[in-house]
């Protein structure tokens, strides 16, 4: 192990091997250290940390910087929603179901309401306008949820600006939600049998304007990310 090398001489001391580095010798240094026993480090990425927006516990086995094994611990957000619903109306349950996946509340509500309508046998009696409004709200929700995903995904890779852009889009969609249903998030808008109330007057035009603005803004977002070398290197061909 201790071959004579003009760039990184090492000597054994009571504390272990001490390397004297004199410059230009990173490769030999690394290879000398690399011949020593590998260390497997077990790191606990606990339930609170900036990376996962939400709570997830990861126990990682690292070899250097590469993660070789991961074990997850979940259950930190168990709310007992199903048991709560047992003591409530079918309509009141919508307010609980909407908080199951809080980034896409309308999807939770619609899934639940479709199931309730199937049990009641009224799936064909839902007004067509209500079904169309449900789909409209779901697609808007998809946009807002994907904006969070893009923004926070970019944030994890170190890019802060796309997050601001993405949240700007999300705010526009949330304004539309507020006009239609009264709330920005967790609206309890879709109820068994239809929706809670019709779209306000003039909403069609506002939504068309919104779509136009969003289309333009998405082009900006895309240019921010797709042209970026770091983003492409971190995402292309991974996994």
């Amino acid at each position: 192990m201790t071959t004579f090398d003009p760039y990184a001489s090492s000597r054994e001391t009571t504390e272990g091997t001490v390397f004297s580095v004199t410059g230009g010798d990173w490769d030999s240094l690394v290879s000398e250290i690399g011949e020593s026993k590998e260390e497997r480090i077990i790191v606990n990425m606990g339930p609170q940390h900036p990376s996962t927006h939400g709570v997830l516990r990861l126990v990682l086995e690292l070899e250097g910087e590469t993660v070789t094994e991961v074990r997850t611990g979940i259950g930190y957000l168990h709310t007992g929603i199903e048991k709560n619903i047992e003591f409530r109306n079918w309509t009141q349950a919508v307010t609980f179901v909407t908080r199951m996946d809080y980034l896409s509340p309308i999807f939770n509500e619609t899934a639940y309401c479709l199931a309730v309508e199937k049990l009641l046998g009224i799936t064909n009696d839902i007004p067509e306008r209500a079904s169309v409004i449900r789909v409209l709200m779901m697609e808007l929700n998809r946009i807002s949820s994907h904006m969070v995903a893009l923004g926070t995904g970019a944030l994890e890779l170190g890019a802060m600006a796309p997050m601001f852009f993405a949240f700007r889009e999300r705010e526009m969609v949330l304004d539309a939600f507020e006009e239609i249903s009264g709330l920005r998030m967790n609206m309890a808008y879709v109820r068994p049998g239809g929706v809670s109330q019709d779209l306000p007057a003039g909403m069609n035009l506002k939504l068309r304007e919104l779509v136009k603005t969003l289309r333009k803004n998405f082009k900006d977002n895309a240019t921010l990310l797709i042209g970026n070398t770091i983003w492409m290197k971190r995402t292309e061909g991974i996994g």
Binding site: I74, G75, H78, G80, E82, K83, N84, E86, F87
Partner: peptide
Amino acid sequence: ILMPDDWDGHPQRKDYPL
């Protein structure tokens, strides 16, 4: 998996109190 490891009882059973 959802409750703490030393929890007593099985919450979603009908005789488990809310």
